[in-house]
Every structure is written in C-alpha cells, then in structure tokens.
Design a protein around this nucleic acid. Structure first.
Lengths: 196, 196, 196, 196
DNA sequence: AATGAATGAGGATTCATTCAT
DNA sequence: CATGAATGAATCCTCATTCAT
C-alpha cells in the first residue's frame, strides 16, 4: 500500500512538474491538456484520473508555488534574536527564494490574473499576503518596541516591503534588472528598510 | 444603424472603450468578440476592419493604460522648481493616475500576465519603465547635487520607487489595501522616499 | 459618350485582367474580391459597379477564355481546301492557341468544376464542346466523302481528338510534358489522326 | 452513440465514404465538416482526430480515386501474353475503372481543379501518371520488338492514350458522352490505338 | 490506473455584398 | 463612377472533458 501511494504521489508530482513547465512557456490559457500530458509522458486520460480538471491542476500548482514562504517567515519571527536581525534574515531568505523561483515567476503574474476571476484563488492569495504582511509588521512592531526601528506605522512598512518585492519581481521579469533577481530584491528591500 | 460619419479615430476609440468595459467584466480570455461588438454597438466585421485580431485589441487596450505617465514625468522634470518639490509632484500625479486605474481593477492583474506573453507589449513596457526610471533617477541626481537628497545610488532609488508603485497596484488589485489606490500609492511612496 | 463607354470598357477589361491573374494564382474559391480589387488597382466598391457579383466576374472570364476557338474552327471549315488540309490547319491553330493560353489553363480545369454546380456554365461549356465536335466531325465526314479519311465514325473521331487535346492540357498542366504545350498538343493530335 | 470498437482503419474509411458522398452532392467547397460528420454518423471532433483538416480529407479522397490503377497495369505488364493482348486487357480494365468513376461524376471535374492547387496531390498525380505512361510505353515497346506494333515513339503513344482517357473523363463529366463512361473510354482508346 | 478515441459546445475569423458619402 | 467603412452569416477548428476498454 505504501508503494502504491508513493507511486500516486510520484505520478501526480510528475504531472505537476510537466504542467509548470508548460504553463511557464505557454501561460495558463494557451496551455492545453494535451501539452501537459505530452510533457508528462502520460495519456490525457491519466491527467483526469489524478486531477479533476485543468483548473484543479492550476490550483495545485498555485499551492505548490505559494508554499514555504510563510513557513520561513514564521520560523524567523519565532527566533530569539533582535528584530533587525530578523529582518535581515527575511531579506536573505527572500533573495534566495526569489532567485530560486526566478524560473517560475511568470506564473505568479498569471495567478494574480486567475485570482481576479476565481474567488477561491483570490481568497487564498489574499490570505497569504495578509498573513505575510501581518507577520512582517509584527516583527517591525517588535523592533520598534525595542527601540530599534522608528517607523510610526508598522503595517504600512510591511506593506511597502511586500509591494517592493512584488514590484521588483515584475520589473525584473520584464527585463529591467541587470542583476540576478535575488540580488535585485535584496537591494530594493535594503533601500526600503532605510526608512523603517 | 451605426452612424457612418464617425472618424476612424473615433470609431477605434469607441471600440476600445467597449473592449475595456467588457474585459473588466469578463477578463481577456472569456470576453468574446461578439461581446465587444455588442458593447460598442458595431458589427463584428467592423471590429476586424479596425483591428487585426482580438490580440490586437488587447494590445491596444494595454498601451492605452500606459498613456500619459511618461509625458507627465517629463514635464515635471523640466520644471524650474527644486528637486524635492518635483518628487512631490510626481507622487501626486502617480496617486491621481493610479487612483484612476482602480476603475480597471479586475483588468490590472491580467494586464501583467498578458504583458509577460505579448512580445510587443513586453517590449513597449520595458522601454516605458526604462525611461521612467531614467527620468526619475535624473531628478534624484539633481536633488543630490543640490544637497537635498543623500542617496548614493539614484538609479536604485528610482527603481525602488517604480517597483513600489507597481507592487502596490498588484497588491491593491488583490484586495489587500483598505484605502483607495491613490492614497495607498502615496503612502507607500512617501515611505520609500524617506530613504532618499 | 463614346469616350465614356470606352472608359467603361477599359475599366471592365482592367478588372477582368486582374481577376484572371488572381484566379490563376489562387483559384476561384480562394480568390477574394479584395485580391481582385487590389490587383486591378480599384476599390472593392468599383468591382460591384462593373460586375454584379463574384460569380459574374467568373462568368465574364469564362466567356473571355472560350472565345475564338469556335470562330477559328468555323472559318477553317468554310475554307475551300481539302479536308485533310483543314484538319492540319485545325491542329496548327490549336497548337498556337494552347501555347498562347498556357498561362490561363489552370482556369479551364476550374471551369469544369464550376460547371458541375452552375447550370448556366455547364450549359455554356457543353454547347461549346458539342459544336466544336460537330464542326470537327463535319470536316471529317467531308474528308471521308472525298475518300481522304476512312474512319467509320466521324463523331467518335472528333470526340477522340477533342478528348486528346483536353487530356494533353491536363497532363501538361501537371508537369508531365517535356515540351511546350502547343508542341505536345500537336504531337498528340497527329498521333490520334493516324487512325482517321 | 457510435460504436467505439471500430478499428482506426475502419473509422477512417467510414469518414471517407461519407465525405465522398457529401462532396458529390455539394462539391468540395460547399461541403461543411458538419455535413461530413453527420453523414458519417460521428462527431465533428472525431473528424479532426482522424484527419488534420478539411483539406486533409479532400486529399485522402483524391488519393482514393487513384487506387488500383497502377497495380492493375503492373500485373498486366507482367503477364505472359502477347503485347497486343496486354493492351486489350488494359483497355478492358480502364473501361471498368472509369465506369466505376461515373458514380462520382460531379466530383471528377472538381477533382482536376483541386489537384492543380494541392501541392501534395499534384505531386502524387505527377508520379502516378509518369509511372503509368512508363509502364504503358514499355508494353508498347515490347509489342514493337515483337513486330506487333509499328509506332516509332512508344512514349508518345502511351502519352496519347493516357491523355485520351483523361480527356474522355473530362468531357464525359461535362455530359458530352451519350454512352456510359466505360464504353466511351473503350471507344476512344480503340480509336487511338489504331495508330499504334 | 491507464489509454486514446470520441464528443460537441464554443469562438475567432473570413469575405461577399451593401451603401452613405 | 468611385470609395472604403460597415455588415453579419457562415464555417473551420480547438480543446476540456468523458468513457469504453
């Protein structure tokens, strides 16, 4: 039984890998189930055995991409180190994550688009960013209480940081950054944090 | 039934107005040419007389969303006022422009997604942002020379500002801002500019 | 008035010239009125001033192409020369005509196709060939009466000759003849006539 | 509703049968994919599963009309009988085959028209006729060596025979033959062969 | 679990024709 | 006579989804 379950996992993983590959190249709407099946090396029928629909695959990709970020932030927040050091770690992790996911970034923009039409996706993303900003602002608050930061609006500061990251990814995806995306995110964030 | 004397320019405008309206409600992919034609009050054939394809209409709509921004920035840069006042004006204008964009909220997220796929649009945006950042950094440089600003990297500062604006729009489009987009952009920018 | 009429004639000629050019390259069905208008250097509206419809243009081209052949044959038949010499002249004229019309031959095949669906065209072509075969068989009959030919079925002989010409054009159009079409027709006809 | 167990081969055959039926009634261009699907009793999607496009179906139909002819000729050529008897058999077979074609009469004229435009079909036909003429001329050569025939140009004789057959089909398709196509072809060929 | 043939609603695009100017 | 914008019916093709095997 364990073997079978793992096999299923593997096949699903295999399909999702293929789906992401196809989505990156063609975008959600132009990608056909045939393309995904071909890329995954399975039949179209198999796709529908493992996933209910194309939308289901897109959702699965969404969850896959938006994993980890929050977890890391939660961990950092819980650490027993000064707030400024926490923020530094956040920046470092973001730089690493963004750099690692540079390949999949085109998908992010599409998710925002999908979110506009799919209530559930929109809710998911909204919650994700809301918690991200909350965690971040909590750290900033913590730093302000400790006299390290001096901003009067921690939430706004967190929002600004998050916006800066997303905006940087966007501009970088358009080819407006001469450096690696991770480096660029780091530079931008450090700049923003001067005002905190 | 439709009047024949509308100038070519006017008829195209009329179609694009209708297209944006439809796109906002249905999104780019779900919007049908029939919908646009009906909304514009012209025949489907007329759509194809003025625009080569649906993609062509989408491109035209995207270009439209980016009209004016650069012109305003050029004008402000050429003014005979201190650099810090120039930046203030830029922020004001951006707040107004972005506030106007709020009307197209459901479109904005898709916009970025489509821009990534559309070669010509992508190129257009790249040039747009490149010049925008250049102009902005020139103003910042000017301020630094005048002793008003103290940043050591004007280009990075301009990049950060631009990224912050775009990121704000993105997050706002997701419903993450409690205020009007214009106000939110203003807050974010003022925050970013503390570091300049 | 004469000038105007001639002008009209000229414009119609101009359009038909263009139409034939376009038809040869694209075929009747793929040729668009826009193509013809562009080739003729006039507006599409002008096309409809001079011709009732696309079918009307096709008909006009048909009549244009199937002119002359019969007239020549009638003239030759009426000549005061021996029947065998008449046939020789027919062959010569056919060789010349086919060679001259080599450029337009692709249209002929399409006319047969059109004829199948358009009663009037079919009737026109049928009459054309029927008279052609009649004239030809009359000449052959004439020769048999004079003791020059010995065929027992002049109509069949005329049919065979006509079929041989059309078949030769067909094969030549497919690229199966190494010689000029006129020469090929001549060779084939001479071969067929050995049996007359 | 349609049975699923039909083999791929059979289903394609079924579609082509339907297509020919529809083409005969409506012609290539007026026949819609829906018509073919309905006639075949399958869905439109199934048409596109088995054939790439409408053109693809048309090509397949054209190829179909030319099946067998070469094979028969090759067989006859290989027989151990005198050359004149071989030619007689060729004529008999042609008469039978052409007679069978009469069923597709409305299609035949269009067939030649389409063949002229369709690169791949044209090439196929060119090769077909080339080999046909070669085989035929080989038989004639054989007969001349045996002292049966006396033509000095076997290739020209073969070309003439082939042209006569095609021309006869063309004229017959136009309704210019009072007899059955098979009979007409036989008459014409016998007439042509008098000169061999 | 896997396959791949079958389905059919859906939509973009074409193009002959009209007609106000 | 000429123009070219406007019309809209017509149709090819796509593609997510189903299901018998």
């Amino acid at each position: 039984m364990a073997a079978r379950k793992e096999s299923k996992q593997t096949r699903q993983t295999q399909i999702l890998d293929a789906a992401m590959e196809v989505f990156v190249h063609l975008g959600f709407s132009k990608a056909r189930m045939d393309d995904i099946a071909a890329e995954a090396g399975v039949s179209k029928g198999s796709l529908y055995w493992h996933f209910k629909s194309k939308d289901d695959i897109i959702s699965a990709v969404l969850y896959r991409l938006f994993q980890g970020g929050l977890g890391e932030l939660r961990q950092i927040k819980a650490m027993d180190i000064p707030a400024d050091e926490k923020l530094q770690r956040v920046v470092q992790r973001l730089a690493i994550d963004v750099q690692a996911m540079q390949r999949w970034q085109p998908l992010m923009a599409e998710f925002y688009a999908v979110a506009m039409r799919h209530g559930s996706v929109q809710q998911y993303l909204r919650r994700y960013y809301r918690e991200y900003i909350e965690l971040l602002s909590a750290v900033i608050d913590e730093g302000r209480d400790a006299g390290i930061f001096h901003t009067d609006d921690a939430v706004q500061a967190a929002f600004t940081m998050t916006a800066a990251v997303e905006g940087t990814i966007l501009l970088a995806a358009l080819g407006l950054s001469d450096e690696g995306w991770g480096q660029q995110v780091e530079n931008t964030l450090l700049h923003v944090m001067q005002g905190i």
